[in-house]
Nucleic acid binder design. Structure first.
Length: 573
RNA sequence: GCCCCCGUAGCUCAGUGGAUAGAGCGCUGGCCUCCGGAGCCAGAAGCACAGGUUCGAGUCCUGUCGGGGGUACCA
């Protein structure tokens, strides 16, 4: 579909050029022309405030500038009326005839009508979730998953060729600990009095794994070290994680293992290159360390440092520890180098706030390698706090998250209590930068009255009408769309904003915008459903036919917006 | 201490520097013999504080206060 703000902006641009050529406006450089959907009745459909911004360079009053622009505005089939108003706004009204034509176009093209070509020929990658396989997916991780998956859907709608990737590390100390923890549980399952290692994983899921392992293997592994346990736990955990995510419609195209970069040596190649470029050095403490820091580091073996201070960091960072094992910094840089080399134009990285600072070091690393980091975009989502209402005080209180034995801590438990659609919507309907209070009870208890079903019900209603029409042997073929009223067209107008919403969400990496748009779209629809009956006594057949056509288009529109959010579009509720 | 995020209605949250700051929940009052009422209509209620930039600030800058996260030779 065409983006209406862009089309309007082009008209304004031509009008200014034409006014300048005619001497109605002085010469000046034409700035970017902002076009916004009108905010209220009587202000047309789209507004342009550019005249106010031009007042200075044109040395004229905003209203006079607006008048000149309107005077020189070229004709366009989608605009029926233009006026200047207020302090200097130019208000455009969409043509009714054109709007009605869009109904046919939507039905002919289907959901593809709402696709853009801004990403055509470009590859995009979204990396999200990326949890190491040491425990089940938590509510907090789900947020990043939903944001990432929705971002991917929006990029696809914008025309990008999208890959969803999951980056994981199964080689670190955490995984060793997981193996050791499972071994302890395994020995316990066999009746031995074996304590968990210090700092081990206390999650009850390891008890289940251990029982399973004991059933399968008997006591064959009593003398094994942590490795087979780690491998068993890892395989089980990944299966679990993938199942959990699949429940809410999240899948990945590629799982990228950090370890593969150790095996192919690319990590060491990056280190060498950083060294050649003068960004690495070996020392016991960083180059600008204070005396205090130096004293602390006195008895350490040297480590390899990354000179991030060259890029404005407050201190240099360790890349390779004194024991020869890299910290996460080096693999992260190597990973992003790898991404760039795979030829993505856009790489979106969804991170939780607890990892949020790390991307800066990665960016410095990419720059240090002489590569262009501008294709990398980070969405940092703030933490999720599961809350519920205290029955005594009425206050919202936090439900403590614990991977050990929290009540509401895993995605699985949440799915059990609510529904995938409810989880997706509520997680999505917040700006990523906003701290999320996820009120479990609200999503559960009030589910009959929440926006999730409000939006889906719009689709259900369209389906209901179609079903009823079919039962009565009525069809919308050959409908005379001109019989529709302003009310229906107001909805179509709102539906046409979907392209702008997708564009903005993609350009600004803010997938939550689609969730709010969907709610607005539904609230434009439901009053019409109430007022504009398609079927019923006293409604002329040609009017019925036209209205059926309208609801047909509306059904496609809601299907599309629900798809974009990864939600189901039920036909009945 | 320093860095990042947040502070908008009773609650949960929207709000690309533009016209009269929006929605959901909750609350109050109306509307159903209707294509499924999981709906519609109406009402009360708000930009943490202080400066600054701008023709115009919830939005940008500085500071203060409050909340969250980070600040490891953990990931």
């Amino acid at each position: 579909m065409k983006l209406l703000p862009e089309l309007h902006a082009n008209l304004v641009k031509k009008a200014i050029e034409s006014a300048q050529a005619a001497g109605d406006l002085p010469q000046f450089e034409i700035p970017d022309i902002p076009i916004t959907p009108a905010k209220r009745e009587g202000q047309g459909d789209y507004a342009c405030p550019v005249a106010m911004a031009l007042a200075k360079v044109a040395a004229k009053k905003p209203r006079d500038i607006a008048e000149m622009i309107v005077k020189h505005l070229p004709k366009a089939d989608f605009v029926s009326h233009v006026e200047f108003a207020g302090p200097g706004f130019i208000n455009f009204t969409l043509s009714q005839k054109w709007l009605k034509q869009q109904i046919e176009a939507i039905i002919v093209e289907g959901e593809d009508y709402f696709s853009l070509d801004i990403g055509a020929g470009h590859k995009a990658q979204v990396e999200f979730v990326s949890a190491n396989p040491s425990g089940p997916i938590t509510i907090g991780r789900s947020r990043g998953g939903i944001i990432g998956d929705t971002m991917a859907r929006l990029l696809e709608a914008a025309g990008f060729d999208v890959q969803r990737e999951y980056y994981f590390n199964n080689a670190g100390m955490q995984m060793v600990m997981l193996g050791k923890s499972l071994k302890a549980r395994y020995l316990q399952a066999l009746g031995q009095d074996e304590p968990l290692p210090e700092g081990g994983y206390q999650g009850e899921y390891l008890i289940d794994f251990a029982n399973e392992l004991a059933d399968e293997q008997g006591d064959a592994l009593v003398n094994a070290d942590w490795k087979p346990f780690k491998e068993f736990a890892e395989a089980k955990m990944f299966e679990w994680i993938r199942d959990s995510l699949a429940q809410i419609g999240i899948t990945h195209d590629n799982f990228f293992n950090e370890d593969s970069m150790f095996q192919d040596g690319s990590i060491w190649a990056v280190l060498e290159e950083l060294d050649e470029r003068g960004y690495a050095y070996k020392a016991t403490e960083w180059a600008g360390a204070s005396d205090e820091e130096k004293a602390k580091a006195a008895d350490r073996e040297p480590a390899v440092w990354f000179r991030t201070t060259a890029f404005g960091d407050e201190k240099d960072r360790v890349m390779v520890k004194s024991d020869g094992i890299p910290t996460y910094t080096l693999p992260d840089i190597a990973y992003h180098k790898n991404k760039i080399e795979r030829g993505f134009d856009i790489m979106v990285n969804v991170l939780g706030a607890d990892h949020g600072q790390q991307y800066k070091v990665v960016q410095m690393g990419i720059e240090a390698l002489g590569m262009d980091p501008s294709g990398i975009h980070v969405i940092i989502n703030q933490m999720v706090k599961a809350v519920r209402q205290n029955p005594e005080t009425g206050e919202l209180e936090e439900i403590k998250m614990s991977t050990r034995r929290g009540v509401y801590d895993t995605l699985d438990e949440l799915v059990e209590m609510t529904s995938p659609d409810a989880i997706r919507y509520h997680m999505l309907a917040r700006s990523p930068s906003s701290h999320l209070n996820f009120n479990v009870e609200e999503v559960v208890k009030q589910s009959n009255d929440n926006p999730v079903y409000y939006i889906q019900n719009a689709h259900v209603r369209c389906c209901g009408i179609a079903r009823e029409a079919e039962a009565r042997g009525l069809s919308d073929e050959g409908a005379d769309i001109s019989l529709l009223s302003d009310e229906e067209l107001a909805f179509i107008r709102k539906a046409l904003e979907m392209g702008e919403v997708i564009e903005t969400a993609v350009n600004q990496y803010e997938p939550h915008k689609i969730a709010f748009y969907a709610q607005e779209l539904a609230s434009t629809f439901h009053p019409i459903y109430d007022n504009v009956r398609a079927l019923g006594e006293g409604i002329p057949e040609d009017v019925t036919r036209a209205r059926l056509r309208f609801y047909h288009a509306a059904r496609i529109i809601f299907k599309r917006v629900l798809d974009l959010m990864g939600m189901s579009a039920p036909e009945r509720m």
